[in-house]
């Protein structure tokens, strides 16, 4: 009798806890999510060219990340990671580590890709990786952000093995291959950076001669 009661009590608490967990991850917008999507889509100036408006499309990853507030259950996360890993493409020559000096330039560039009518970037403006917005890299650059982890001495600490070089390339190409819903953009997937540009940033991170690894 006591055992049965304990079992019943345990189950009830368990169910209540899982109900609470479900509530804790209510999708943003709740019951108004559909209305909100409709409202958002119709909030943009009619003068925006169609090809700009395509930037509002969400792929499966974006939708799921929004739904789970960037913290998806592991099962969903694993599925997204597989999906994203399958998108990775490599440079034609197959070399994944390029010129760290080119990578250093790209890491510092935060402009490019701004649209609209108020302060758009001029057409053809270099798009960079904007790495310093979120990461510490070379010691001499103190204006770094902290949204991502510090990558100072990354190559020195992690080594310049082939495996690590491929990991860094893949991470920059499609960050969601490793951590679904990370804050980091998917630079290769969106063709924000070319495969060649990514190899230069890989070099900036890993090459022993790069200022990232030289104090």
């Amino acid at each position: 009798m006591n055992f049965k009661f304990a079992l019943f009590f345990g189950l009830t608490v368990g169910m209540a806890a899982s109900a609470f967990a479900d509530k804790a991850v209510e999708a943003p917008g709740g019951k108004y999510a559909k209305d909100a999507e409709q409202m958002f889509r119709t909030s943009f100036k009619a003068e925006n060219p169609k090809y700009w408006m395509t930037r509002l499309e969400q792929d499966e990853t974006m939708k799921a990340c929004q739904q789970y507030r960037d913290n998806p259950p592991r099962k969903v996360g694993e599925k997204l990671e597989k999906l994203n890993a399958a998108t990775i493409r490599y440079p034609v020559e197959g070399k994944l580590i390029g010129d760290w000096k080119e990578g250093e330039k790209l890491a510092a560039v935060g402009t490019g890709g701004h649209i609209g009518f108020i302060q758009p970037d001029p057409a053809g403006k270099l798009r960079g990786g904007n790495c310093y917005a979120c990461h510490e890299l070379a010691k001499k650059e103190i204006a770094y952000g902290t949204i991502g982890p510090s990558l100072r001495n990354f190559g020195k600490i992690r080594g310049n093995t082939e495996e690590n070089i491929k990991y860094v390339y893949d991470k920059i190409y499609n960050s969601n291959s490793f951590t679904a819903c990370t804050n980091m953009p998917r630079f290769g997937l969106h063709s924000w950076l070319t495969p060649e540009q990514i190899t230069h940033i890989v070099a900036f991170l890993i090459d022993p001669e790069s200022p990232v690894n030289k104090d």
Partner: peptide, 23 residues
């Protein structure tokens, strides 16, 4: 609630949402 929806909505060539930087 609709504002909350937009706050977490990810899209664009950098996968951004408001929450990426302000969450």
């Amino acid at each position: 609630k609709m504002g909350e929806y937009i706050f977490y909505r990810r899209s664009g060539p950098q996968d951004f949402s408001c929450s990426i930087c302000h969450g």
